[in-house]
Amino acid sequence: MKYIFIASAVLALSCTKNQPITEKPEVIMEQQKNVDPIYQFKVKDITGGEFNLADLKGKKVLIVNTASKCGLTPQFEQLEELYQKYKDQNFVIIGFPTNDFMSQDPGTNEEIAEFCKLNYGVTFPMMSKIVVKGDNKEPLYQYLTQKDKNGLGDFDVEWNFQKFLINEEGKLAKVINPKVSPTDAEITNWIEGK
Rank of each mutant, 00 (worst) to 15 (best):
I4H: 06
F5W: 14
F5Q: 15
I6R: 10
I6G: 12
I6F: 02
S8L: 10
A9R: 09
L13M: 11
S14Y: 10
S14T: 15
T16Q: 15
K17D: 15
K17T: 15
P20Q: 04
I21P: 11
T22M: 05
T22P: 13
P25E: 13
P25W: 01
P25M: 07
E26G: 06
V27Q: 11
V27H: 02
V27C: 01
I28P: 09
Q31V: 03
V35P: 12
V35N: 03
D36L: 06
P37K: 03
I38C: 01
I38Q: 06
I38G: 08
K42E: 15
I46A: 04
I46N: 12
I46M: 05
I46Y: 02
G48V: 12
G48N: 07
E50T: 15
A54S: 11
K57T: 09
K59G: 09
K60Q: 15
K60A: 08
K60R: 10
V61Y: 01
T66S: 05
S68R: 03
S68F: 02
K69E: 14
C70E: 08
L72H: 05
T73C: 00
P74K: 05
P74C: 01
P74F: 02
F76Y: 14
E80M: 03
E81I: 09
E81S: 11
L82H: 01
Y83P: 01
Y86S: 10
K87Q: 15
Q89V: 05
N90C: 02
F91T: 11
I94P: 08
G95V: 01
P97Y: 00
P97R: 00
T98A: 06
T98F: 00
N99F: 01
F101D: 10
M102N: 15
S103W: 08
Q104I: 11
G107T: 11
G107V: 06
E111G: 07
I112E: 12
A113T: 06
E114Q: 13
E114V: 13
F115T: 13
C116D: 06
C116M: 03
L118I: 15
N119D: 13
Y120F: 07
Y120H: 12
V122M: 04
V122G: 06
V122R: 07
S128L: 06
S128N: 13
S128T: 14
S128F: 05
S128H: 12
K133F: 00
K133H: 11
K133Y: 08
K133R: 14
K133W: 08
G134Y: 14
G134F: 08
N136P: 04
K137T: 14
E138N: 13
L140E: 03
L140G: 04
Y141G: 08
D148Y: 02
D148F: 00
K149R: 12
N150F: 00
G151Y: 06
L152G: 06
G153S: 08
G153C: 00
D154S: 09
F155S: 11
D156A: 04
D156P: 03
V157T: 10
V157E: 10
W159M: 03
I166K: 02
E168G: 04
E168I: 05
E168Q: 13
E168V: 07
E169H: 09
A173I: 02
A173W: 09
A173R: 09
K174M: 13
I176T: 05
I176M: 05
K179W: 06
P182Q: 03
A185L: 10
E186K: 00
N189Y: 09
K194H: 10
